[in-house]
Amino acid sequence: MAEKIGKHIAIYGKGGIGKSTTTSNISAALAEAGYRVIQIGCDPKSDSTNTLRGNNYLPTVLDSLREGNKIHLDDISVKGFGGVLCIESGGPVPGVGCAGRGINAAVNLLQELNLFEEFKPDYVLYDVLGDVVCGGFAVPIRDGITDRAYVVSSSDFMALYAANNLFKAINKYAPTGGAKLGGVIANSMKPGYHREIVEDFVEKTGTSIAGYVNRSIDVQQSELYGKTVIEAKPNSAQADIYRNLAKYIAENENLVVPNPLGSAELRDWARNWGDRIYDIESGVVGVAEAI
């Protein structure tokens, strides 16, 4: 493969956890800092770049592929906030076909169209549907497409479970040139024990935290305007949180191969936390003591 143009970063996480919100704000923050950025939504939902392009219509790569006509980059991409190039891979109608293969085909097509040679990005962000449900969704971290992945997670068990699955996939592919892990983005952090749970999880899996993102009304409000926080509320504290996260991700070279927990291990770990949370909530112990 030719020398890669720009840094290629995959962002994973379970559905609804905040991947698209976080990725779009990172893209916006990087664009604001003067970088050339591409954001590729790799999720059949195809709403990854909504807030970068004011919810405007954008045909997906697979929609164009389905029609079978000759495809031009202009047909499937649009420039959003700060010149971020927005692309959505798209996917089949829910319940039919194979979305995993769709992601694969879309990524291949973008390479065939010389996307990176044409646009010359500094950063390419892939917003990927999260549980690594099959080989297709692991494509962005295989085959040297990206060399680093981040995972968005809250302190909810299912979100950490999805993160652990991603770790398994990285663990499998990293030795043959797949991506490594840059860290966990802890999203929707509320005060209390939530941070401790995620911190304990990264410690157990030999990974690290890339940044904490609070749960904030600014995020929801901006979303309703069809904008990122960076665009809608540039002076808010939340915008700074995203700017710091973007800076960290842009500069971080501490990439690791995680040690995922086994199924039983993960279950025991969760049960243990269940007991502790109960004690905390019922006021038996304070956070610090419980840990």
Partner: peptide, 10 residues
């Protein structure tokens, strides 16, 4: 063809 894999071949 690949199209039928992605979108279903029914």
């Amino acid at each position: 063809q690949e199209r039928h894999v992605i979108f279903g071949g029914a």
